[in-house]
Design a binder for these strands. Structure first.
Lengths: 133, 133
DNA sequence: CTTGACTCCGGACTATGGTACGGACCCCAT
DNA sequence: ATGGGGTCCGTACCATAGTCCGGAGTCAAG
């Protein structure tokens, strides 16, 4: 399993082939040289590094980074720019903390709403009031 | 402050006028009858109910509902469909729990990354490894 | 040596949630 | 009564992150 084609890479990264191609266009994944015996056609081959890169992209996305920011992170990795990487990470942690708090509040509101709507079958279910924190 | 124009409503809901109009097109906010003395022109007037509705939309968005789902919630509120409202709330809580866990993991990963990148100035800053949980 | 699966590529299309624009119209203060 | 700002309306445009399409080339098995 040392070398695979784009379909294999996509599968290992749990994304579609078109998504891989899209990331290539966006500069997130390098387009390997084609081992064309002649002319310029032939399928590209990918390895473990590409799979790691692809997985990193998905994880970073889950962390809320945009593809553009992920592109920067990958560049940073190549450049070994520790300070900038650290700054981006700390910045994102702040946003994440905010987001986590927000979602937790929303969760409380929804729990209250679900309880209120389950409590009885009469009277209005206070949907609009659910988020009045 | 009993009645206001669209600009006032937008301000109270901390959104832009264009956004209010967009929500109207999407059916999230009713378009009040225009108190046209004659013909069919005259600015619409909005009240506290509309502000509440607008704020609800923003809060529900923060909870991860799409505008389409929010439209459904608002319809439910009008219809008093407790069961469906409860189901939507419970469903969303599951997604929220998943999302919160995901973001918490990402936060840990970023904290480790920030530490690693701050620890020393030499050696590679393991950006790609940051999300290998 | 043909057929079918896969690849490459550019460009068009989708969904979501807005944001901007231009012309027509209307209301209020000066 | 007039001029500027606000409103109304449709349409167009934006960013993000894909997803799909059609044609052309290629490769491997039968």
């Amino acid at each position: 399993m040392k070398s695979m084609t784009i379909a294999g890479l996509a599968q290992q990264g749990r994304v579609g082939v078109e998504t891989v191609r899209y990331y290539q266009r966006r500069g997130l994944i390098a387009e390997p040289v084609r081992p064309s015996s002649m002319g310029s056609h032939g399928a590209r081959r990918y390895g473990e590094d590409d799979v790691r890169r692809l997985r990193f992209i998905r994880a970073a996305q889950a962390a809320g980074f945009t593809l553009e920011q992920i592109r920067e992170l990958l560049d940073l990795d190549a450049n070994n720019d520790r300070a900038r990487a650290r700054a981006l990470a700390l910045e994102r942690i702040l946003v994440l903390d905010h987001k986590i708090a927000e979602l937790s509040n929303a969760r409380s509101a929804l729990t209250r709403l679900a309880n209120a709507c389950g409590a009885s079958t009469k009277g209005p279910c206070p949907i609009l009031q659910a988020f009045d924190l």
